[in-house]
Simulated scan of single mutants.
Amino acid sequence: MSLTLSSPHSLILHAHAHFSPSPFIPIPTLRRLHLNLRNHHLNRRQRISIVSAAVRQDTTVWTQAPLSEVEPAAESLFHITVNISDAPDLATSHTRAGQYLQLRVPDAPKPSFLAIASPPKLATSRGVFEFLVKSVEGSTAEALCALKKGDVVELSQVMGNGFDISRVDPPENFNTILIFATGSGISPIRSLVESGFGAGKRSDVRLYYGARNLQRLAYQDRFKDWESSGVKIVPVLSQPDASWTGESGYVQAAFTRAKQISNPLSTGVVLSGQKQMAEEITSILVADGVSVEKILKNF
């Protein structure tokens, strides 16, 4: 569900987000460090102390774990399972759908930020994290998707607040939940749906899931189970073939055609996907009277 970062208030996390944060020294720290080192009054011991303090700012704790599954999930998408049975503290730190972590691959220069696709209960019951990863040429994700079962990767701590479903509870007060996902942004949505959020107790739960074509639509084998839990799935294909009879175009256009919101004040929203989609959906819903406080994102 891809992930975009332009400011702390415009982050939409996708499962294959490939940020490039330095795992070492932040840029502002480097600038200050450069100015300090130019100061001729500092002796060698003082300069070493400054460098050491800057390096210590990287507080990420990395846990090694083997891959237990690397399988195609859809066109350009891979289902990745990491065995964390030897890291119980890491497993129990996944407490809410929508959380994410960093993953490092040997010989890849930078980590990838990946949303956890499996529900939290899977980490504690089976000792695994599952991910839906888009293989992007030249990225850490591509290197990850090329690995095999048994290969070892490194995981950071679990991050983020995830989807705060408490903001759209209890179910009887929020009968309508609209969920929007594009591409691999469906990853944290899978975690949400399979975690359970009272979909069966709500009268109208819709998942608008956008992809280029059916070949790029992941988790089709799970749709039946999702619908049995109370989630109506609306696939939206932007470039379907001639045999497609469902919704086409972009997610926001498909939703605009349907709308059908019975009461904006009892409507909750979940967003995971492209920034433009998220912004346009937000504008449409807020204009219709949906509270911005009831529009949930996974960060």
Rank of each mutant, 00 (worst) to 15 (best):
A199M: 06
R216T: 09
D86C: 12
Q157G: 13
L271R: 03
P109R: 04
E227Q: 07
V70S: 09
S184Y: 00
Y100F: 13
A211S: 15
Y219L: 11
P106F: 05
N43H: 09
L237S: 08
Y250V: 06
G196R: 06
L237N: 04
I48A: 14
S2T: 05
A15N: 05
L11N: 00
Q220L: 09
W62Q: 03
S238Q: 15
A73I: 07
S166W: 03
A17D: 03
I25L: 12
E130M: 12
Q99P: 02
V168I: 14
S85E: 06
Q99Y: 03
Y219I: 01
S266Q: 15
S68W: 03
G289Q: 01
T140C: 02
A123H: 10
W226F: 12
S139W: 03
P170Q: 12
L155G: 08
P240C: 09
V251P: 09
K259W: 12
Q46F: 09
A117S: 04
V236T: 02
Q252N: 15
Q46C: 06
S203L: 05
P21Q: 13
T63Y: 15
R216Y: 05
F78V: 11
I165Q: 02
T256N: 15
Q64A: 14
H40V: 13
D107V: 00
Q102G: 07
L296H: 03
I48K: 13
I84R: 04
L285W: 10
T29I: 06
Q157M: 11
I189M: 06
G268L: 00
A73V: 07
F129L: 12
V51E: 14
Q64R: 13
A54C: 02
E75C: 10
I84H: 01
E247S: 13
T267K: 03
W226T: 05
A287K: 14
Q57V: 00
D89A: 07
